[in-house]
Simulated assay, not measured.
Amino acid sequence: MARPSLREKIIESGVRTLHERGYAGAGVREITSDAGVPQGCFTNHFRSKEAFAATILDRYHERTQAIMDGTLRDKGRPPVERLRAYFDAITERLEAAGWRYGCLVGNMSLEVPEQSEVLRTHLVEVCRALTDAFAEAVRAGQDAGEIRGDLDAGDVATFLLAAWEGAMMRMKVDRSPQPIEQFKRVIFASILAPGVKAGSPQ
């Protein structure tokens, strides 16, 4: 197997470093040190820290999309089960991190919009893609009679993402899974069609 390029090592390390330390807390020195590469390698591959952060967001989003492909977009599951599978898959990752770091997209959404218009615009695009994936699952649930039909799918999707990010933010503060579990209980109790249990077709 080919050895990873220096650029790839910086990106892989950068996902972890920005996730754990935040945009402001992760300097070029920390990023390259964590990657085990000379500091000069950074400027060879990225024109700025801002451009680097955009690349990190893209890599993180690719990983999230891969999880969505196996959950939200899995047509072999009932739609509500797709939603639950997605939240459960992310919960496993949050638990593995000790309930400490939450979502990189949410973290950066709190930190960078006033610092960088480039990153703010990038975050808008990422959040739109996440919302679209939720909306697709919600519409499928409405078509199957699993999710309330009196709700606009786009509104539900926007609320799902906002509430999920908020739950992860509170999780980081509490260092506890309780906000995540509360989110799941309230969300599914709120959006399910009457007589439908979460994860079960009507």
Rank of each mutant, 00 (worst) to 15 (best):
S109Q: 12
T71E: 04
F134E: 03
E136Y: 05
G70P: 07
G76M: 11
G102M: 12
L161H: 03
D69F: 10
C127K: 15
D69C: 11
E81W: 05
L104E: 03
V186H: 00
R175Y: 09
R120Y: 06
K184W: 09
E114M: 12
M68T: 11
V80Y: 03
V196T: 15
G149T: 08
G70N: 14
R63T: 11
H122C: 12
E117H: 14
F134K: 00
P177R: 08
P179Q: 01
W164P: 01
F188N: 07
G145L: 05
L104V: 08
R139H: 10
P194I: 08
D74E: 06
D150L: 08
A66P: 10
R63D: 13
E92D: 15
A96W: 08
E165M: 01
V156G: 03
A163E: 06
A163R: 03
E165F: 01
R120E: 09
K75G: 11
A163D: 01
T91L: 01
S116T: 10
A157D: 06
R148M: 06
G98S: 12
R170T: 05
A135K: 07
P79C: 02
D132I: 11
F87A: 00
E114A: 14
R82P: 02
V105K: 07
Y101I: 11
R185T: 13
R82E: 00
Y101N: 15
S190C: 12
M168D: 03
G106C: 11
E111S: 09
A144S: 13
I187D: 00
Q65Y: 09
K197C: 10
V126F: 04
E125T: 08
G106S: 11
G195M: 12
A157M: 07
V173P: 05
A85L: 03
M108T: 09
G166T: 02
R170A: 07
P177A: 07
L83N: 03
S109L: 08
Q142G: 07
A144T: 12
L151E: 05
A96G: 12
R82L: 02
V126A: 02
V80T: 14
H61V: 05
R82D: 00
G70S: 07
M108H: 09
S176W: 04
F188S: 06
V186P: 01
R82S: 00
